[in-house]
Design a protein around this nucleic acid. Structure first.
Length: 846
RNA sequence: GGGCGAUUAGCUCAGCGGGAGAGCGCCCGCUUCACACGCGGGAGGUCGCUGGUUCGAUCCCAGCAUCGCCCACCA
């Protein structure tokens, strides 16, 4: 190694992430690139990044997802796959509206005042200024995304793809317009989907109201929490099996206040044991009642408008706010002696996930998508195992939703988004077209007005895996990189996004967009609450990267990635940061202390060599297999144990006696193995800890490509020696015990067969004597000349021997225990038998 | 109401049918020639509770308790 490089290694006694990360990332981008090669014949490996909202800042979820995906990308790149990690952001209609409308409010204006065109222009301006900061933040984590082809769901080409999708589905009859009850969010001024409604407890009152039965002097009493909607009642329903009311079915009731005569119907939806067992049916203002209404062909009356006030349909109440109307209705019912009772009532009420406003179910004309056939095709893929959820049990979430799928309301009353490609002429004809038409398709009128609504953001997200590759235009990137391999996301958007991508991928590409769906853990705040900005429980990943380095952060997040909910623990990142430093220093030691002439090679000269080579082969085998099965926590744990305990604590320490000894040949041999093991280890750790490993790689001897694009190590399975590893564990205990005794001021003596593992460590230890004895069955440590401790040792060994023997004598044990367990017990019995006789010999010698 | 998951050392978590583990924290000793972001040694646990299966249960089964997340149209 050149003198300057040596000096640098000697000087840098600590790994300093902040000093190397930016430089290495820049080299990766410049010298290697992350764009994938559409021309290559190599097998592809493709992941589409779940596009973060343009409004977003990197949060813990992104950092975890990013760490996992980048680890997978790097592993497969090192395997020689043609890798592509699709990169981009989502236009996030509602979130962007929130940002811009807040700005407008601060300026004393509103979106209505500035108008649609100016509003949208303003959004673009904001987008140009702030850019997608979150994508830049992912670079800090080391993510090797295809930044050169970054996409945005509002890009020209992407918008075309969305329009194309709409038109095709419309032509197929799957998209249609209908009056339906929808979740109206007064805050958003738009509908929101069922998945964007949160249910929260609310304290309301339950009113019992008497409805006169037509042609009698009797009453039917119903229970309601929304008396103001009485004005829109179009039936009263009871359960068909309810003997109390069976005789009333087919008769009519008079709706209080408005005096409308409505049928009394029977419907199984009604719960006999709730309230009075009679339900007022208001199709215009309740989703369930809407369904009942459709089943029975009832009129749909709206008395509440989109402005949150009573509409003209409500007659004398028109113009009142809903709350005021409610009070007035109650007063009227009371004065007319129709209010039978009132009691406090706590129940769940829908709130908008974004704004927190209480959802108002309203009937309106919206665009819908029929999901049944699409869902059936997607479900078949999941049922057959062709699409696999990991962990498997997350499928339940998917199926629960998909097996009960309902039409999807895809129109939103917003301005920022993909405007629905439907134009209306004054005669009301529809023209549906990807490009703006010049004339009505039916009557030729040139006076066309475009549907003002935009599409649900998830509509465009659903085609992310292929619209990002240039669909619908045929092209090489699309042909090469679709379908992808795995989707990595959190379980809260399994239905919102994953299911819809599956359906659209199958519909438009004829093939599932990915085979594996890896559902990550969700990291909670340290106190067990949800991590969220609003709760103030969030942790900024960029701060973590500063504190622990990108490698430490990635390591820590992967380590936390075990169960479905896990509490954030800084300790795990700290562990990662320390491991990076440990690895750096192990590299310094190996590169500075070994014979520079030694050619890196796995030379199995001593027992320690064979042992570390066995451990290395086993570790490579396991760590890679665990990454392949998405068991990141286990993988990272295996890396840690090998690097810190096996390599640094035991092998490097044991190697020192040869390294610093007089035997030149031994020095060269152990040097060769040390460098070889280091090289393999660093390559193995690269997917998880890319920066420190790349930095070390640069100091390894010889001309070499960057580690990013170097091959992943192959486990040398012929190096594996489980018996040796087992006896190593025993010898480790002997070494520890000798150290303890020496620490207590004893003068321990170790009797060991020649070539026993780690005796080199004892020979270097102060106050420990080592005695080579070919007859020794196992390494045994005794306190020199101390009859008492020898006897104690003998007693313990006899007890262990007896224990193993009695187990073997137990018929039930022999009959049921697996063969390898029985063998292990047998070996144990033999080993302790050997130890017993060793100690006995030493006792006699005293 | 339904689904999923958790309950193991002071803290965060592994282990999931055959002798209770890691990291951090704590105690003792080390300026040992890679690393004090270190080295060596150590203390600390009736593995939530109750039953069951088994020769044997932290691990499997049932029930209970507590906590978390997701889903859900009881007016």
């Amino acid at each position: 190694m050149a003198g300057a490089r040596r000096d640098e290694l000697e000087r840098r006694t600590r790994h300093q992430p902040e000093a190397v990360e930016a430089r290495l990332f820049e080299r990766w981008e410049r010298e290697c690139g992350f764009s994938g090669d559409p021309e290559s014949d190599a097998e592809t490996y493709v992941i589409a990044l779940p596009p973060p909202n343009v409004t977003g800042e990197l949060h813990m979820g992104h950092a975890l997802n990013g760490s996992i995906q980048d680890t997978l990308m790097r592993l497969h790149r090192m395997r020689g796959r043609n890798t592509l990690w699709i990169c981009g952001t989502d236009h996030a209609s509602i979130a962007v509206h929130a940002v811009i409308e807040k700005q407008l409010r601060a300026e004393g204006t509103t979106r209505i005042d500035v108008g649609r065109e100016a509003f949208v222009e303003r959004v673009w301006e904001w987008r140009r200024e702030t850019g997608a900061t979150i994508i830049q933040q992912l670079k800090r984590l080391g993510c090797t995304l295809d930044y050169d082809h970054e996409r945005f769901t509002m890009d020209e080409g992407y918008v075309r793809a969305v329009m194309e999708m709409f038109v095709r589905l419309y032509d197929k009859g799957l998209i249609y317009r209908d009056n339906r009850i929808v979740n109206w969010c007064p805050g958003c001024g738009s509908t929101v989907s069922d998945l964007e409604v949160r249910h929260e407890r609310a304290a309301d009152a339950l009113y019992e109201v008497r409805y006169p039965i037509h042609g009698t002097d009797q009453f039917l009493t119903v229970a309601t929490v929304r008396p103001e909607t009485i004005l829109a009642d179009t039936a009263v329903a009871v359960h068909p099996d309810d003997d109390r009311y069976r005789h009333l079915v087919g008769k009519t009731a008079i709706v209080p206040i408005v005096g409308r005569e409505v049928p009394i119907i029977a419907d199984e939806y009604v719960k006999m044991d709730f309230g009075t067992g009679a339900l007022k049916v208001t199709p215009g203002h309740d989703p369930n009642d809407f369904e009942i209404g459709r089943r029975h062909g009832l009129p749909e009356i709206s008395v509440i408008g989109f402005d949150g006030r009573m509409s003209a349909e409500s007659g004398e109440f028109a113009g009142l706010a809903v709350g005021e109307a409610r009070q007035k209705v109650i007063d009227r019912l009371f004065s007319e002696q129709l209010l039978h009772g009132e009691r406090p009532y706590e129940h769940e009420v829908g709130h908008c996930d974004r704004t927190g406003d209480r959802i108002e179910p309203l009937i309106s004309l919206q665009w819908f998508m029929q999901m049944d056939s699409l869902a059936a095709a997607a479900n078949a893929e999941v049922r057959s195992g062709s699409v696999r959820f990991v962990p498997r049990n997350q499928e339940a979430i998917y199926f629960h939703w998909m097996d009960n799928i309902r039409p999807w309301c895809i129109s939103r009353q917003l301005w920022w988004g993909h405007q629905i490609p439907v134009w209306y002429c004054p005669d009301g004809h529809r023209t549906v077209s990807v490009e703006p038409p010049t004339a009505c398709g039916e009557c030729g009128s040139a006076e066309l007005e475009r549907d003002p609504d935009v599409l649900d953001t998830w509509f465009s997200s659903a085609l992310w895996p292929f619209a990002t590759l240039g669909w619908p235009e045929p092209n090489e990137r699309l042909a090469t990189f679709y379908p992808g391999n795995v989707l990595v996301t959190a379980r809260d958007i399994i239905n919102l996004w994953v299911a819809r991508m599956l359906m659209m991928g199958i519909e438009f590409m004829g093939e599932k967009p990915f085979s594996d769906v890896y559902i990550t853990s969700i990291i909670q705040a340290a106190d067990g609450r949800r991590m969220s900005k609003s709760l103030g429980t969030g942790v900024n990943p960029l701060d973590l990267i500063e504190q622990f380095g990108a490698d430490g952060t990635r390591y820590g997040l992967l380590k936390m990635s075990s169960t479905q909910d896990v509490r954030f623990s800084e300790g795990m990142l700290d562990e990662g940061a320390k491991l990076a430093n440990k690895l750096w220093n192990a590299a310094r030691f190996v590169l500075l202390q070994t014979d520079p002439e030694a050619e890196p090679a796995p030379l199995a000269t001593t027992a320690e060599d064979r042992w570390i080579l066995s451990r290395l082969a086993g570790t490579i085998d396991e760590v890679v297999a665990q990454l392949d099965s998405y068991d990141f926590a286990a993988s990272v744990k295996g890396l840690y144990g090998f690097i810190w305990n096996d390599f640094c604590d035991w092998y490097v320490e044991a190697a020192k006696s040869r390294l610093y000894g007089d035997d030149e040949a031994a020095r060269r041999q152990v040097s060769a193995t040390l460098v070889w093991v280091l090289e393999q280890t660093v390559a193995l750790a690269h997917p998880v800890m890319p920066f420190v490993t790349e930095e070390i790689w640069g100091f390894l001897p010889g001309e070499r490509a960057m580690l990013l694009v170097s091959p992943v190590p192959e486990p040398q399975l012929d190096h594996r020696d489980p018996a040796l590893e087992e006896s190593a564990r025993n010898d480790m205990e002997v070494v520890s015990e000798a150290r303890r005794l020496a620490g207590e001021g004893e003068r321990p003596l170790v009797t060991a067969a020649p070539g026993s593992l780690f005796m080199a460590l004892l020979e270097r230890a102060k106050g420990v004597a080592v005695e080579q004895d070919a007859a020794a069955a196992a390494a045994v440590v005794v306190a020199r000349g101390d009859r008492e401790s020898l006897e104690a040792k003998l007693k313990a060994a006899v007890a262990e021997h007896e224990r193993a023997r009695s187990k073997l004598a137990n018929e039930g044990f022999l009959a049921r225990a697996p063969a390898q367990v029985v063998d292990a017990e047998r070996e144990k019995a033999e080993r302790f038998a050997g130890e017993v006789s060793d100690i006995q010999r030493r006792l006699e010698a005293l």
